[in-house]
């Protein structure tokens, strides 16, 4: 019996190549060669949003999405750290709403640490991070109510979203809040594009997470993934050209 599952050999090789590229760039970053990541407008707008909310004396709503502990949730939580630090610095108020119980302790710790990092842990309110419901639309109904009653001035939604995306962003739009949203779920990006001021599309969310963390290793991993994209483009171009020349070696190789 083969040690590989059938037709998975090339996938394994590709995986090793891409992980290798990420490790290479992470190692470079560790040695001090930190890559520069292009500006992400949505991330830079966080300070503007918090500033505006502070001026208006109204809270900022933040949600790290409705997904479980998936990559997008972690990216949303990384940016939560940045947003919460900015909120603490400005003396504004943040309301973080949570759908997944697993995400609650992490979000809670991040907000608390952000206030601690700004030296005002006494200003941290345990009521800032609120578990609403793990039922999708009960969560949406609850958050819509909070956004409306608390008269939020800014709405930041970064993470994995499903159908609740439009319900939340539409409510934020009605409230006249400045809205920053991002998700890796392609189905929901159109709604954010239609209703929000700044949108992070797909992988921009992960890059924003890395930038917000300020961690050179994470920035290195983003650069490593960029090399992985070049690998994908090369496969695409070589495969397409060779197939049209009547050569099927790459198709055969990729089928192994």
């Amino acid at each position: 019996m083969s040690i590989f599952a059938p037709k998975q050999f090339f996938a394994l090789i590709s995986f090793i190549i891409m992980v290798g590229l990420v490790l290479y760039k992470v190692q470079q970053a560790r040695n001090g060669k930190v890559p520069t990541i292009r500006k992400i407008a949505g991330l830079e707008a966080i300070e503007e949003a918090v500033g505006r909310a502070t001026e208006m004396g109204r809270p900022i709503h933040y949600t790290p999405g409705t997904g479980n502990l998936v990559a997008a949730t972690f990216a949303g939580l990384e940016v939560l750290g940045l947003a919460a630090r900015t909120v603490a610095r400005y003396g504004a108020q943040i309301i973080v709403t949570i759908r997944r119980p697993l995400v609650l302790p992490i979000a809670d710790e991040i907000v608390r640490n952000s206030y601690m990092a700004e030296g005002i842990v006494e200003s941290y309110s345990p009521d800032s991070v609120r578990y609403i419901s793990s039922e999708q639309f009960a969560y949406a109904a609850g958050v819509m109510g909070i956004m409306s009653r608390e008269k939020i001035a800014a709405n930041i939604m970064l993470g994995y979203f499903l159908a609740e995306s439009l319900m939340l962003s539409e409510t934020g739009f009605k409230m006249g809040a400045i809205q920053i949203a991002g998700t890796d779920n392609r189905s929901q990006v159109p709604f954010f594009v239609a209703t929000c001021d700044y949108v992070l599309i797909g992988e921009e969310l992960f890059a924003a997470g890395a930038v917000a963390s300020g961690n050179p290793l994470k920035l290195g991993s983003i650069a490593g993934q960029d090399l992985g994209k070049i690998y994908a483009i090369l496969l695409l171009v070589i495969g397409s050209v060779t197939v049209n020349l009547g050569l099927n070696f790459l198709v055969d190789l990729m089928s192994k």
């Binding site: 037709k7 090339f10 996938a11 994908a232 695409l236 495969g239 397409s240 049209n244 990729m254």
Partner: peptide, 21 residues
């Protein structure tokens, strides 16, 4: 999710684009 990401979302999807121009 590794097998899914590497095989289903990467290799199979790229291979599906190799078509006659």
């Amino acid at each position: 999710s590794l097998p899914r990401l590497a095989s289903t979302n990467f290799v199979s999807q790229i291979r599906a684009t190799f078509k006659v121009w």
